[in-house]
Write a protein that binds this DNA or RNA. Sequence first.
DNA 1: CTACGAGGATTGTAGGACAATATCAGAGCC
DNA 2: GGCTCTGATATTGTCCTACAATCCTCGTAG
Lengths: 233, 233
Amino acid sequence: MDVLQLPVSDEPVDDVAGPRHGATVNFIVERLRDAIVSGRLKLGARLVEGELTAEFRVSRGPVREALRRLAADGLIELVPHRGAIVRRLTRREIAELFQIRLELESLAARLAAADGDAARRRRFAADIAPIFEDRPRRVADYLCENAKFHEAVYALGNNEQLKVLAGRLQLPLIMAQVGNILTSDVLDLSVTEHRTIAAAILEGDPERAHAAMRTHLSRAAEMADAERGAEDC
Amino acid sequence: MDVLQLPVSDEPVDDVAGPRHGATVNFIVERLRDAIVSGRLKLGARLVEGELTAEFRVSRGPVREALRRLAADGLIELVPHRGAIVRRLTRREIAELFQIRLELESLAARLAAADGDAARRRRFAADIAPIFEDRPRRVADYLCENAKFHEAVYALGNNEQLKVLAGRLQLPLIMAQVGNILTSDVLDLSVTEHRTIAAAILEGDPERAHAAMRTHLSRAAEMADAERGAEDC
DNA sequence: CTACGAGGATTGTAGGACAATATCAGAGCC
DNA sequence: GGCTCTGATATTGTCCTACAATCCTCGTAG
């Protein structure tokens, strides 16, 4: 189980462990999160404290803390006296999360369009510039672009609480689990919708931004559900 | 600092500590949460691991874990090498949280009104019965009734993710910090609005329930903001 | 074949130790 | 007097070891 190792680690072994004092837990969380959303840790894989302490060369304290944090984010599930397992979202959970995301993100879009701060608007325009480029996109490219776009909307929306709450919606995990539906057609459509939303925000039309975001996410939710329905449950 | 002790504890001292194996952390979390929302722990009060271990007769492990959990819920703030302090929400944070709550809870109201499960509807009707009673309400009564009402809406809404997310919105904390605006007039108005919402849900009118909930929370948000504006910032 | 018990695996908690870091009081300097 | 620097103190961050509690598995007896 070396899926957790950094790409290159020929350095002395103790370099693999946490960086500075006070950052050990963060280090472990990030590594595990990355391993999960990237799929290196498969769904249902067990995470045992003992193995992780050996893997990261740290004591059980930080490991336990890291696991609790991942569990709070919903990436793993803690089973008492059994260990933690990488969580698989059920079809229903995905539907529910999309329903929530629909509300939160359309709110963010409306707030973003209504925001008057010039600096933030410039920042937004710069951040989302990539979506207007006409270039072929691979799935990985799109996922990255997509994450940045939605994040930029939240940032311009300027509601800090909303931003942190959205971060807890496990979007990366969802994407990882339904990512295989992203054909080139779907991808183009998504990019087009992003542009529509962005245009409404940049023109300062809150209601149009709100509606466009709802449309975008409704469609995404339906696709995810259809895909998930085909494959299980 | 005996604000954490249970009301009555004449029993042998070791009864104060955690109940059964595996519930220690929960025990500490609940006690601290209660102490915070009830106001026994004042805003800005320090929570030091060492004191808590002595207070609860447990080791640092569970205490640390409990603190992390409370911090994740936003009730306290962890300051590195300084300890944790009971968090005071800023005026802005409260406004932002209400904005989010407005969306989530009006979604819940719509879902609740649209839900067709007979058993859940019966359960809902039973749970909210108290709001239709015509009796004088003290603030504490209302707070309890209010919490139960909104919880019942979420339950009928039948979106599990939405329910857990709403639980992270620190409503009790907000209530504790703006609770002093609850005059008898305000209280009556809130009860009336609750009835309006409940009626729409019971009649199965999603849009009316949605709108009524928005009205209710918009008003509440304005009042909270006005109060907070007077007192600080 | 099933019930049951023994043992292993794993987490939950305890307690002690030391390192790292933030805070604070006081000494010394300007 | 006010300022800076330094040491002492407080507190968390991490590690270690040990044991208790619990769940799981597997072999055995009926």
